[in-house]
């Protein structure tokens, strides 16, 4: 089977493409369905860690700044709150309706869209 000439391969490719085009609507719908399925599970698994990660980064940064500048617990308190807010923001970006995404295209919607 590996001995096919170039021309027969092109013909085959063309016929394959035609066949795929004929079936295209079904295939596309199926693919979209499967895609959304796995994306949903992935989203659910992501939400929890996003929130924890935001808080963890905030606490770590606050703790580090306190250690560096020697003014415990000012930055720890401040950055814990900011980190928690960042975590909530992460989750919101994850779950917000896709329409909201379309409203603000391009660079205007922040780094994580």
């Amino acid at each position: 089977m590996g001995k096919e000439t170039d021309s027969s391969r092109q013909t085959f490719d063309r016929r394959l493409k035609q066949a795929m085009d004929r079936n295209n609507p079904d295939r596309a719908a199926e693919a979209a369905l499967q895609g959304s399925d796995i994306t949903t599970v992935g989203t659910v698994l992501r939400a929890g860690t996003e929130m924890v990660a935001g808080l963890a980064v905030g606490v770590a940064m606050g703790w580090g700044l306190d250690r560096w500048l020697g003014c415990r617990p000012v930055f720890l308190i401040l950055f814990s709150l900011l980190g928690g807010a960042a975590g909530v923001l992460n989750v919101w970006r994850l779950v917000r309706p896709q329409d909201a995404l379309e409203d603000k295209p391009g660079p205007h919607a922040g780094p994580e869209r």
Partner: peptide
């Protein structure tokens, strides 16, 4: 208020990425 939150949100990416897989 917003800039530090955005920066923390950005910096939390590698943390959430690594913790998710590891956990």
């Amino acid at each position: 208020l917003l800039v530090p939150i955005e920066i923390l949100s950005f910096l939390s990416r590698p943390v959430s990425l690594s913790i998710r897989l590891f956990a």
